[in-house]
């Protein structure tokens, strides 16, 4: 999963896009080392384990669990993976772009 996430972040680095992580590793030092090894650039909330407060509030039962939100913060997709995830993000970016175009045309 991580290579694909990296690719996504790299491909969309000049777009209004953000990958926000909620990390569930137990060992903070291990997590930091792995971030360096894999070249992870995105920010993650630190939960200290899969039973962290956000994981419980968000009813996370499996990993990874992925939500895609549009620019208004609305949940638009749940658990899209791979190409599906790319398409979901591209669709929402297009929506945002169209909205801005419509605004500037007024």
């Amino acid at each position: 999963m991580i290579p694909h996430e990296k690719e996504l972040v790299e491909r969309l680095k000049n777009k209004p896009f953000a990958l926000v992580g909620v990390n569930t590793d137990k060992d903070k030092e291990y997590y930091k080392r792995q971030v360096a090894v894999h070249g992870v650039t995105w920010r993650s909330s630190w939960q200290g384990g899969t039973n962290g407060p956000l994981c419980r509030e968000w009813n996370v039962r499996g990993y990874p669990t992925i939500y895609v939100l549009d620019h208004k913060g609305v949940i638009r997709f749940k658990n899209a993976r791979g190409k599906e995830l790319d398409a979901a993000v591209d669709k929402l970016l297009k929506e945002l772009e169209d909205e801005e175009k419509a605004k500037s045309a007024k």
């Binding site: 999963m1 896009f17 926000v20 569930t24 990993y63 939500y67 620019h71 913060g73 993000v89």
Partner: peptide, 13 residues
């Protein structure tokens, strides 16, 4: 991150 498209990812190594 409001105003951006966000992928919220619960994950771990």
């Amino acid at each position: 991150y409001r105003g951006k498209v966000v992928v919220l990812d619960f994950w771990g190594f």
